[in-house]
Amino acid sequence: MRRLELPEQWERVPELRQRVEDLLKSGRRRTALDEVLRHLRHDPESTDALVLALTFLGQSRTETLESVEPMPDVQRWCALLAPIMTECTACHVAWYSNHVLLRHGGITDMAMANPVGLQCQDCRYTLCRDCLARGRAQSHAVPVDMVEFADQPCPASGCNGTLTTPVFPTGCHDVTPMDPNEIEGVIVARDGLIPPTMDEALVPVTKFLPLIADDAPLIHIRRSIPGLMSDESTREELARSLVLEMEREMAITSAAWARSERMFIRAGTANDTDYLIIVVRKDEHHPSPRRGTRVLTYTYLVQVLPRRGTWGTLRDPHSGDFREGTFGAVAVPEGTLADIAQKIIGQSTMDLKHRVLFFEGDRTKDEKLSFADVYGVVTQGSDIVSPYSDDSA
């Protein structure tokens, strides 16, 4: 498990620090954590980003609840934050402790009553408050309101240390180490008849994989059948059928099964019920062109070329709105627009030439969308983002 070992000095990221500090001053913790997670998505080893996250994730539950922007689970327990999590060795419950920041700030005496957990200062064996209570005999010789300090011998075999404070990060045992830029797609199925929404699927995906909410375009939600997740053999059959289905739809490249990893997440660990998550790595022999790392937001608009005429948009004849599926916004890794365009075009059933126009940012509410603002164009079958032109070629 990778865990934060705070050095005496580390490289600061001034721009990120300024943005986060400004947001925290106005109580916008969710937006501040979004900034940190986007930075970690690009640079997961950034000590400064991890320190910034711990400064407000390690705050009290009351402070968190009173925040103007409470942080959802898809943020709080993101796998990119695993190095600053503290995990109970016995039950694997996780929490955030800011003791490592206090120690770096010069505070060495951290004796406290009713701590969230205790840790061995020799081997870093850690127990949460509940596991400590289960292993400690109830004292009846003192008043009920008297503070009892919980320091006790370390239960780890061969260790002569003591469970006490401070409590430092341990990392998280169930995070799958993986370069997010090597992921071609993530298939998600939930046990039962009703598939999860994207928001629901993001919770277990981001908890176990180093992805963020901006990576939603990589996630493919599929239906399951009750009972198919009951044992390993049926889960493997389900996983194989879902991978083959994605290949037939040309949503992932061929021979994906050999590049896939399967994760079965039980209800006690997931947000609601059992999940099957299939991670498909990119094909090294057929890489997507110019795959970038930064996740940016683009607005797309589909145009078609009649056999006689010029490029035009598809609109509903009654409302005048763009036809469903031809206009929207996507948050995707920089450099993947050509791939995204071909997937959008592939959803059309019209036997006409297509192209996709991309605008920077989310402009779905922009009533004065101008073709002069087009960032680039991808024509059907092309892997190149070209400058905008009204030419019918």
Results as ranks from 00 to 15, higher is better:
residue 186 V to R: 02
residue 187 I to W: 01
residue 187 I to H: 00
residue 189 A to L: 15
residue 190 R to C: 11
residue 193 L to P: 02
residue 195 P to I: 02
residue 198 M to P: 08
residue 198 M to L: 15
residue 203 V to D: 06
residue 203 V to Q: 10
residue 203 V to K: 06
residue 204 P to F: 04
residue 204 P to A: 04
residue 206 T to N: 09
residue 206 T to H: 04
residue 207 K to D: 01
residue 208 F to M: 00
residue 209 L to M: 07
residue 209 L to E: 03
residue 209 L to W: 06
residue 210 P to G: 08
residue 210 P to Y: 01
residue 212 I to V: 15
residue 214 D to G: 09
residue 214 D to Y: 10
residue 216 A to H: 06
residue 216 A to M: 09
residue 216 A to C: 03
residue 217 P to A: 03
residue 220 H to I: 14
residue 220 H to W: 09
residue 220 H to G: 06
residue 222 R to L: 05
residue 223 R to E: 10
residue 226 P to D: 07
residue 226 P to K: 08
residue 226 P to W: 09
residue 229 M to N: 04
residue 230 S to K: 14
residue 231 D to K: 11
residue 233 S to Q: 15
residue 234 T to R: 15
residue 236 E to W: 13
residue 237 E to R: 13
residue 238 L to M: 15
residue 239 A to S: 13
residue 240 R to H: 12
residue 242 L to N: 00
residue 243 V to D: 02
residue 243 V to L: 07
residue 244 L to G: 02
residue 245 E to N: 10
residue 247 E to M: 10
residue 250 M to G: 02
residue 251 A to C: 07
residue 252 I to D: 08
residue 253 T to Y: 12
residue 253 T to R: 15
residue 254 S to H: 13
residue 254 S to C: 10
residue 254 S to I: 11
residue 255 A to K: 14
residue 255 A to W: 12
residue 255 A to F: 14
residue 257 W to L: 12
residue 258 A to L: 10
residue 260 S to I: 05
residue 260 S to T: 11
residue 260 S to C: 11
residue 260 S to D: 03
residue 261 E to S: 13
residue 262 R to I: 13
residue 262 R to C: 05
residue 265 I to A: 00
residue 266 R to D: 09
residue 270 A to N: 01
residue 270 A to H: 01
residue 272 D to G: 02
residue 272 D to Q: 10
residue 273 T to Q: 04
residue 274 D to P: 01
residue 276 L to Y: 03
residue 277 I to F: 07
residue 277 I to C: 04
residue 279 V to W: 05
residue 280 V to F: 06
residue 283 D to F: 10
residue 284 E to H: 11
residue 285 H to N: 15
residue 286 H to T: 15
residue 287 P to K: 08
residue 287 P to R: 11
residue 288 S to D: 15
residue 290 R to L: 11
residue 291 R to Q: 09
residue 293 T to C: 03
residue 295 V to A: 06
residue 296 L to P: 01
residue 296 L to C: 06
residue 296 L to N: 11
residue 298 Y to D: 02
residue 299 T to M: 05
residue 299 T to E: 08
residue 301 L to G: 05
residue 301 L to M: 12
residue 302 V to C: 07
residue 302 V to T: 08
residue 303 Q to F: 00
residue 304 V to Y: 00
